Computed example of a mutant assay.
Amino acid sequence: MPDTGLMQPQAEQTTQRNEILDAFRNALAPLGGSQTLEDRLQALTQAQRDMLLSTARMVQMAMAFKVAAGDYSMGYADLVAQMYGRMDIAKQQLIAELLDETAPLGFEPSPKPPRTDTAISIYDRPEMQVAPKEPQQTKAGFLERLTQSESSGDNNAEINIADGRRYVGALQFGDARLQDYQAATDTSFTQDEFKANSALQDKVAAWHIADIDKTIDGLGINTDGYDRDGLRAVAHLGGKGGMKKFVQSAGKYNPSDELGTSLQDYYDKFAIQS
């Protein structure tokens, strides 16, 4: 005898609702819909897990320093975003969720009140602005925008990637680029010394952009049609050689860094829209 009782249509309707809700969960949730944290971690490769663990440890250590200093202004999610602003948002959220699960904080974050002082940012001071070949192409405050993207303005930011390379400071400089600066200026310091010296970070930042500008100018007419700030951002992410290849290939040379950000991504982010 067919099941035509009153309960059958209701069961079908409930199932239908659940399927629709699950579809929306999967479509809207950036970390894999209804998957558990364990499921998402299981889906990672070993290299991805190692990277995740290394990054999570750095965030946990930074949080410990903040708490020891009496700073309870942010939770893991905000701290991850501050330290690793270029990282894909889904990866940021996965790291924050992992830390919330394994090392929960014993306090509710209390954001600091906004600053009301009118001091000029170091990156907006006249002496920090590098004169471009064509001034109308360069937006004032490029360094500040770049700093916010790289570290949210945190001079103490640091990231270690899977191959062992380390990037530190407000602009996330690797050792190779710091060695370029030292060779050009006949100076000597370690990455740790650089990270601890905000004045030195400012000097290297100004030199870094001026050095990139020389390379852009050296490309001549090849850069016609390109935005200078966009090319500066490409060179910061992929090196001066990478920026040259990006221009000379009309954007076909477009690798991504370890966090999934491509040269074109950074060009689009910083290019001034007319």
Rank of each mutant, 00 (worst) to 15 (best):
D78V: 11
Q82A: 15
G85M: 13
A90K: 14
A90G: 12
A90L: 05
Q93F: 03
A96Q: 04
E97D: 13
E97R: 14
E97Y: 12
L99F: 08
E101T: 13
T102S: 12
P104R: 11
L105F: 01
L105I: 04
G106N: 12
F107S: 04
F107V: 06
E108I: 10
S110Q: 12
S110M: 08
S110I: 08
P111S: 08
P113V: 02
T116N: 07
D117E: 10
D117G: 14
T118R: 10
T118K: 13
A119V: 10
I120L: 07
S121L: 06
Y123M: 08
Y123P: 02
R125L: 15
R125I: 09
P126K: 07
V130A: 04
A131R: 13
P132R: 03
E134W: 04
E134L: 06
P135C: 00
Q137C: 06
T138S: 12
T138R: 12
T138Y: 06
K139L: 12
T147C: 09
T147K: 01
E150K: 03
E150Y: 00
E150T: 01
S151D: 00
S152P: 08
D154Y: 05
N156H: 14
N160E: 06
I161C: 02
R165F: 14
Y167K: 10
V168Y: 03
G169T: 01
A170W: 01
Q172E: 04
F173P: 00
A176R: 10
A176W: 14
R177L: 12
L178N: 02
Q179W: 08
Q179T: 13
D180H: 12
Y181F: 11
Y181G: 02
Q182P: 05
Q182G: 07
A184P: 01
T187E: 14
T187P: 15
S188T: 12
F189M: 04
T190D: 06
D192Q: 06
D192G: 08
F194N: 00
K195E: 01
K195Y: 00
S198P: 07
A199E: 15
L200W: 00
